[in-house]
Design a protein around this nucleic acid. Structure first.
Lengths: 114, 114
DNA sequence: AAATCACATTGCCATACGGTAATAGTCTAA
DNA sequence: TTAGACTATTACCGTATGGCAATGTGATTT
């Protein structure tokens, strides 16, 4: 049951869609998201799991937070992040599936219709 | 039936996922995709529908083509583009729904857990 | 063959963005 | 209150990217 396919979207809608996809368009942010798929994590834990610098992790988390993709709670010294938008699971699954399909289709040499 | 959620992905997989999402992370490319949701279009038609310059349309279409999101066929002077990856419909629907939900949740003032 | 049409490509510029280092802020423990 | 742990923010730099203008390429028409 497609909700929006083919409908005309406003300029603002296209902007919002773009920004949202952009939040998922960086490997490091995807790493953070996938780490959070197992459950809540502190920033320190995410730093460990991703191998990135703390400043970068915080910066990326901030963007994900502003986009509503993750949520945050503070307890003591720690900040706990979690997936706040369950849609993310389906989005990543779909995209991974699409990539798989594309790789399958390209077995035995690439084909570019031209 | 989630296919990949929570699984560990390789560095390369995260890169591919990121690149693919990046293809959808620009308003102009989303406009092109939405125009193609009604069916095949020539470059000229897309230029008209989007109001963008022909050079930009061609450049964006190239990226979508390389990502396997659109397909292309040439006939005479024209190049006809079409959606090649049906996953795009679901992805955009899901994302639009997610945005809707977020806007709904924010009625009556923004809330940022901090 | 020359002109024309449709599209692709290239170079340029301004902006955006990621990584890094340094600093600031906040909470806890002593 | 001072020190230390955890997180956020800022400034800086190099790269990537989008829009634009100009040019290149291939097919069609005359």
């Amino acid at each position: 049951m497609a909700r929006y396919s083919g409908k005309d979207l406003s300029d603002e809608a296209f902007e919002m869609l773009g920004e949202r996809f952009k939040a998922l368009a960086e490997p490091m942010r995807l790493r953070l998201i996938y780490a959070l798929m197992d459950g809540e994590r502190t920033v320190s834990e995410l730093v460990q799991e991703t191998g990135a610098l703390q400043a970068n992790v915080s910066k990326h988390l901030r963007m994900l937070l502003e986009e509503g993709i993750v949520g945050r709670r503070k307890q003591g010294l720690n900040a706990y992040y979690r997936i706040a938008d369950p849609t993310i699971f389906e989005l990543c699954d779909l995209m991974c599936g699409s990539i798989q399909d594309r790789l399958q289709a390209n077995l035995g040499g690439f084909s570019r219709s031209s």
